[in-house]
């Protein structure tokens, strides 16, 4: 195994994961460095969402190595993993209908003191401020997506795992989300994006992991995207 890189915030090696009896991940290897935006690309069922869920322990069982901010996470219960500095935005957004927008925002416990303040968050997402008293699930799809991202910015998590944030949203909102990701990168957040929408991900990300059959099939740097167009097309069949 390689020596851990000093700037490495996430290292996953030989990660296997199971839902019930079915073996979904077959030895995923990837690393993410501090301040990077990295995407997991691939077809449906290639194991991208499961990779995020396995990092958080939201699968039936898992094995291999996961290190987050230098701490081993594979044996930790789910509720301790967030405290290593991870914020998670699930694919279905996970907005709570019995909570108001503001209660949704304030729900995740602070894990470090250096998260964004509520004012900063409202500045970045003015819609949420306007609707802070509304029931969480009464927001539009785009606003719910903003809320799902916004609520993990307050906690002080430095590594954000964002699952399919552009799914089903109008192009104008997808563009806004692109700006949000750029701003978060400037602020020093490290972001792992699971994306279906390659055109959204391509200009944002520093590196791309292409997944197939529960493993990483290729890693492509931003600079090499042009040369690898064909490979990507083959894997994503776009």
């Amino acid at each position: 195994m390689l020596e851990p890189h000093a700037d490495e915030i996430l290292r996953v090696s030989d990660l296997h994961a199971y839902y019930g009896e079915s073996h979904v991940l077959h030895g995923v290897d990837l690393t993410v460095n501090r301040g990077e935006v990295v995407t997991l690309l691939g077809r449906n069922g290639s194991g991208r969402t499961t990779t995020l869920r396995a990092i958080l322990g939201l699968v039936t069982s898992r094995s291999g190595h996961i290190s987050i901010n230098g701490h081993q996470a594979i044996d930790l219960p789910t509720h301790k993993i967030a405290h290593l500095g991870v914020g998670y935005c699930p694919e279905e957004r996970g907005i709570f209908s019995s909570l108001t927008v503001e209660e949704n925002l304030l729900l995740p416990p602070k894990i470090r003191s250096d998260g964004m303040s509520l004012d900063e968050i409202y500045e970045m997402f003015p819609n949420l401020k306007e609707r802070r008293k509304s029931q969480g699930t009464k927001l539009s799809g785009g606003e719910q997506q903003m809320l799902a991202i916004a609520r993990i910015l307050r906690t002080g998590a430095s590594l954000l795992l964002l699952d399919e944030i552009t799914e089903g949203l109008a192009p104008v909102i997808v563009r806004t989300l692109g700006d949000v990701i750029r701003k978060l990168k400037e602020r020093g957040y490290t972001i792992v994006l699971v994306e279906q929408n390659f055109h959204f991900a391509a200009p944002l990300a520093d590196r791309h992991y292409v997944m197939e059959h529960g493993r990483v099939a290729a890693m492509i740097d931003k600079e090499d995207l042009e040369d690898n167009k064909e490979l990507i097309n083959r894997f994503l069949s776009v």
Partner: peptide, 14 residues
């Protein structure tokens, strides 16, 4: 209330 709706996600928040 959140735990009643989606316990796993609340756990993932720490």
């Amino acid at each position: 209330r959140a735990g009643t709706e989606k316990p796993k996600l609340v756990e993932a928040f720490g």
